[in-house]
Structure formats: structure tokens, C-alpha cells
Computed example of a mutant assay.
Amino acid sequence: MPKQTLVFESPVQLSVQNSMLKITYKDDPDNVTLRAIEDIAIILIDNHSASLTTPLIGKLAEQNVAVIFCNERHMPSSMLMNLDANTLQEKYFRLQLDAPLPLKKQMWKNVVEAKIKNQALHLKSLGKKHDRLLKYATGVLSGDSSNREGLAAQYYWRELFGKEFIRDRFGEHPNDFLNYGYTLLRAATARALMASGLLPSLGIFHRNYYDAFPLADDIMEPYRPFIDQIAYKLHAAKKKKLDKEVKASFLELFYTNIPFGEQMVQLGTCLTYTTASVAKFFMGETKNIAYPRVACGS
């Protein structure tokens, strides 16, 4: 059964009853719902009057459930995660810490190639020019020393949203849509990394003193075009406000089947396949990180 994402936008009391998640709506105390914790992947809390009990936090950690909290602007801002989600964690942590620079550079080459290819496929699916991106993808060097990722990004955003668009976290619309989608993707990637025994705080490329999950930022890169697809469709539909309908569109993406190898797999499950291959890369069992691809017919 696919894991679920639960979103709470009203005042609720979240607790444990018979090892299940008990949901009590504060505005209607008689309205109580029970959900199996093992069926949950992510809980997103977007109401400052919502509360969780300490026993529940422990149960959620046991099942590797990521709990995301939103700020007053209704944007995801912090997250609770399990620190003991895999029995081989200590082994993988040591491999991450001891990983030689050439290995990290090869991993980053994998990531950049996959990202640019998916950007190209996204543009192709929209009938836009994309051949230059395919050339960039074939020219990625170890560690992306020739900055093909940066060149591809300039071309990609110009073709996708027009010459006037600048991708900036604090930029104008539709940057707000992209920010929301990327934050959800980051949380889901961090959760998948923990489930694979990897420490999200040890990145292979991204390094920032204030960044708690640089490895998630690294590994999620080829998944960004899937978020871009949603943002583009919403922008084309003249959606301007980050309302419930828009947020739901991004959340639904994680349960959408996308091409992974010869199969169609839910994006949330694809993340677990990807992070498992990252663990194998650190162990020297593979030289390729497994990623899904954007469907040109989407």
C-alpha cells in the first residue's frame, strides 16, 4: 500500500491511541479519526494551533515519518525526522565520511547529467527547444567542472518561462510555486535518504553551514523538473495564489506514476529506489544513481 501524506490546516490535537495516530479536531472534539502510522510517509502541519504529544513523536520516528511544520506564510519551514531509520546506518555514515573526492565528483556528474536530461525532456514535452540541453548533458565532466548545470539552468528557465523570468527563491511569481514544491521534495528526499541509512547532512556537492540537508539538496536535483511541470501547468492556467488547490497539486505529484526504467512507479517510491542506489554507490556496488525520467507525453 502506498504511503500517505497527511495535511492539517485546522487546529488539531495529534496523539497516539492503540499505536495508531489519533486525530482530534479542536473545533469539534467529538470528531476523532484514527490512522495507521505505518501507512504514513509525511505529515504536514499548516496551523499554529495544532499540537502533537511526545509519545506520538516517538511513534512517528519509529516509522520514519517526516513531520513538516509551516510558518506564518504557510510555507514549509522546519521538519522532524528519525535519527535511527536503518540498521546499517553506522556503516553508511562511515562510508559517507570517508568517501574520497573522486567518488563524490563522479556521483555529482551522475546527478547533473540526470537533471539536465530531465530538463530537456520537460521542454520537449511542451514542444519547446531542448537540443542544447541534450548537448550539455553529454558534456558533463567529473564534478561538473565545466559548469554544465549552470549553463543548462540559464537556457532552461528562459525557454520555460520566458526571457524575463529569473529563478530566485525570493523572486516574483511563479517562484513561490517552485519554492513550495521544492521544499516538499526536499523533505521527501531527506526521509528516503534516512530510510536508506544515509545521513542527509553530509552532502557530495552542496555545502552550507546553515543547510541541514545538503545531501537531500544534491540527490533531489533530477527530480526538480517534475515540480517544474506542476508549476508550469498552474502558471499556464493563470493560477497566482498559493491556495489549497495549488498545494494539493504538488502533494498529488508524489503519488503520480512516472517512468522509472521500464516501469511506471509512484514518485515517492522512486525516491526510495534512488536513495538505495546512492547507498550502493557509496559502497562501490554501482557507478550509476538510479533516477526516473520525465515523460514526454505528460
Rank of each mutant, 00 (worst) to 15 (best):
K247V: 02
Q106F: 06
V112A: 07
V32M: 02
L88S: 13
L251D: 00
L134P: 10
S19Q: 15
S249I: 00
E113F: 05
P76M: 06
P200F: 06
K109Y: 05
F250R: 00
R186V: 04
L52M: 14
K287V: 08
Q266C: 10
K91T: 11
A99G: 10
D144E: 08
M283E: 12
L185V: 01
H130T: 12
Q266R: 13
T138G: 06
D39T: 13
G58E: 09
F282V: 09
Q96S: 05
L141E: 11
S125V: 09
K115E: 10
Q229H: 14
E9Y: 02
E62K: 14
Y92K: 01
K163R: 09
D217W: 10
A99H: 03
Q229S: 12
F205G: 07
D131G: 01
D211H: 03
L34D: 10
Q96P: 02
G162W: 01
D218H: 05
N208R: 12
F282K: 01
M264P: 00
A36V: 08
D211G: 00
T286I: 02
R207K: 14
P2N: 15
V140N: 06
A120T: 03
T189G: 05
I37W: 09
P29L: 00
R73S: 11
K233E: 12
L267F: 00
Y182P: 04
G139K: 11
E38P: 03
M283G: 03
F205T: 09
L253I: 06
L6G: 13
L234F: 07
P100Y: 06
K247G: 02
L123M: 11
A85I: 03
K124W: 11
M81V: 07
N86I: 03
P29E: 02
L215M: 03
Q106H: 15
E90W: 08
M264A: 01
R132Y: 14
D131F: 11
A114S: 05
I204G: 06
K26N: 12
N47V: 00
L101N: 13
K233Q: 10
K163G: 09
A237Q: 08
K240N: 05
L133D: 01
R94Y: 08
A36T: 08
L202Q: 08
I289P: 07
R73A: 13
R158N: 07
D228L: 12
N86W: 01
H206L: 06
H122T: 06
T5N: 11
A192M: 14
A187G: 03
N175L: 01
P214E: 05
Q229E: 13
S146N: 14
Q17V: 12
L202A: 08
L126Q: 02
V294M: 13
D30N: 13
K109W: 02
G181V: 00
H74V: 03
E113K: 05
A195M: 15
Q119N: 07
C296I: 14
F254H: 10
R148F: 12
A212G: 10
I116R: 02
E113N: 03
Q266I: 08
L178D: 03
V140K: 04
K244H: 12
Q17T: 15
